[in-house]
Amino acid sequence: MSAQTAQWQDVAPLLQVRELSKFYAPGKGCGDIDFDLYPGEVLGIVGESGSGKSTLLNVLSARLAPDAGQVIYQSEQFGELDLYACDEAQRRVLMRSEWGIVHQHARDGLRMNVSAGANIGERLMAVGERHYGNIRERAQAWLEAVEIDSSRIDDRPSQFSGGMQQRLQIARNLVTHPQLIFMDEPTGGLDVSVQAKLLDMLRGLVAELGLSVIIVTHDLAVARLLAHRLMVMRRGQVVESGLTDQVLDDPQHPYTQLLVSSILQN
């Protein structure tokens, strides 16, 4: 089921965001954020540096308390949850089971001092798996799924290239079959050819697993390739949102027009 059809059917949104705001200083942060995310949908958040993309992603993924507003999440385990009114214990359970968080810098999302296998296995163990053989088997399968030779299972992430580290980070998140993934510039800092391979793989996994994704990027090519829908941010506000092709091919807001004409792109 595609995200667009989900909207027209009687499917509850996975995430409902209501009048959300978090400001460090006037214009620094994000405010008046309202949207729904449907199951299977990939939402891209774009905008220039400092526009508040990461701040918004952190608030959405329960890592940064907002000043005001609500994030309501439809949990497989807990039902409807108001993320900042519920128990912290529940939020942390979500983070290691139903959610995945892919950081821009792999070292923020990986344990660099343990093997690739342990990195993937950790979430399984966190949700109660206690059979070494099973953990190892699943780690191997996930390494292959992200196109890392499974013979590297006992190597540390520090022995991996940047692209491999990023793929390992993705495997580590996906092993518990999360339904919602948050990504902040997952291709940032990688060579163009490595980026392309990663994007290709991501696109495949998202489609195959029916993942819902919120992805922050300042790279409109990444947004076009992965996102069904876009929100364009400027100085903490959403200035335009809509289907990716519409926003990129027929931008309405002057800022989006500038962005698309690539004058603002770095």
Binding site: E88, A89, R92, R96, R111, V114, S115, G117, A118, G121, E122, R123, L124, M125, A126, V127, G128, R130, Y132, I135, R136, I153, D154
Partner: peptide, 29 residues
């Protein structure tokens, strides 16, 4: 596995002990 006290205190409070199993996993591997 976790150098921050603020975090280990939370891990105990919420009985989040999966990470500890990582150490045993590394041994067996």
């Amino acid at each position: 596995i976790e150098p921050r006290d603020s975090e280990t205190i939370k891990m105990h409070a919420l009985r989040e002990y999966g990470a500890m199993q990582v150490k045993l996993y590394e041994d067996v591997a």
